[in-house]
Design a protein around this nucleic acid. Structure first.
Lengths: 240, 240
DNA sequence: CGGTGCGTTGACATTTCTCAACTGTTGTGG
DNA sequence: CCACAACAGTTGAGAAATGTCAACGCACCG
């Protein structure tokens, strides 16, 4: 399968340069980061690492997607985060505790990752203050994202959480025809929004019946963003 | 009121040196950080900053507490985070977006803060790679905390969220007499756990009736941590 | 084909919220 | 010192939202 060949050095370099952490760095420096990386290719469902494992380094997603999750003792999985192309994860494990705090598994086939090897990257980091600058900025960005997630989960009604989430998806089009696409299977979305798949399904139907939404499967069109905003902010869903 | 005098330079220095960001730095460097700070004293309810305001810098809590929250259009406040002594907040605003993303207000009287002034601190930061090291580490710590919060909020039952929270409070004693103290008023705790004060009250009573908990007001004794753990992990609260 | 996993739907049980009333405490001003 | 307002906390009753369990359709894949 020639189409699944591992990414060449050029590809790695380009991916790293686009990463918020390293944006704006001179090429030579990015090359030195690239020298710390190893590619890894996975199929959907394959584990990247297990919670508790010693940290080898952090990862950059080149293609596909990775989900980070916890496993409750009964086996129910709670998705903490979903990481798409051009994003990285597990920096905190590297810089802080030395162990991965959650499970990570590929959520698409194929998923191409870059492992930024911990030991050599840390050595590089210590000698290059400019690396720090970008890392701090992008970790802060991550923090803000998580704060957003906390807010989302704090919304008490499931309808509000869903509306909030839909509005934050990257959208195409404008006005009353915002086309969005769900990132993964609906059961994952349900877990992410802390509700059951059944509830998600019913809510989507209700939104559709009221003309707020249109479409089937993962491709949706938001017909009435204002109404969705109102729902996200806690307004009661009108009885009609 | 002599007891409320603003913190002297020595106090500031000590507080900064204890901050995870700057732990392990040589004294001279911490002094240069201290030179960027200004003290601020507030009473409960007073605002530190409003969401959307331009960022002056980040803050360190010396005494008292600060709550970070959003305001829904209807005025309902959602506590994103509560920051106690020895902790800092709003770094992300400084390093990333230049505006405060949430509201911040004092939650105790008196609350003593240190404003680490943005412009001068950033200048210092750029010139001192060793600062970066610690900042990255402690921001990662913050990230992990937030991931923990996401997990907590992801727990579907209110009882599980409460049990989870109780178990994570700093505790004194051991075995079956873990003494903990709630950080603030119960209505704030309720908001933090995304439930109503009524539900919180009823849950506490139920826990107490079942012998899992003891005490009144904000001082509680956890009598059966194992049972609480089971509840936090989703086990049904036994009918008896 | 037959299986496996996702998504949907329905009926039902349970949790949690809402609304309202009541208690106890604190702080204020008379 | 007391009466009073303001607020946190508690309690109860009923309504609404959500989870649970179970069945079914549908696509995909061997």
């Amino acid at each position: 399968m020639a189409s699944e060949s591992p990414p060449g050095p050029e590809q790695r370099l380009a991916a790293l340069a686009r990463l918020p952490h390293f944006a704006g760095l001179e090429r030579g420096l990015v090359e030195r980061v690239a020298a710390c990386t190893r590619p890894r290719t996975l199929r959907a469902g394959e584990a990247v690492f297990q919670a508790g494992e010693a940290c080898e380094g952090f990862f950059v997603v080149l293609a596909g997607a990775v989900k980070l999750y916890r496993l409750s003792p009964e086996g129910r999985e709670q998705v903490v985060h979903r990481v798409g192309p051009g994003r990285s994860f597990a920096e905190a494990a590297l810089f802080n505790i030395g162990r991965y705090p959650v499970h990570a598994a590929a959520a698409a086939t194929p998923t191409e990752l870059l492992l930024v090897e911990g030991t050599s990257f840390l050595a590089l980091f210590r000698g290059e203050p400019r690396l720090a600058q970008g890392m701090v900025g992008s970790l802060c960005q991550r923090l803000l994202t998580l704060v957003g997630r906390v807010e989302e989960l704090s919304l008490t009604s499931a309808a509000a959480r869903l509306a909030h989430h839909l509005l934050r998806l990257p959208a195409r089009g404008s006005g009353e025809r915002l086309a969005v696409e769900l990132a993964g299977p609906k059961k994952d979305l349900a877990a992410e929004l802390s509700m059951t798949p059944e509830t998600l399904s019913r809510l989507l139907r209700r939104f559709t019946e009221r003309g707020l939404l249109e479409g089937r499967g993962r491709r949706l069109v938001l017909r009435d963003p204002d109404a969705l905003t109102a729902i996200a902010e806690g307004a009661e869903t009108p009885p009609a």
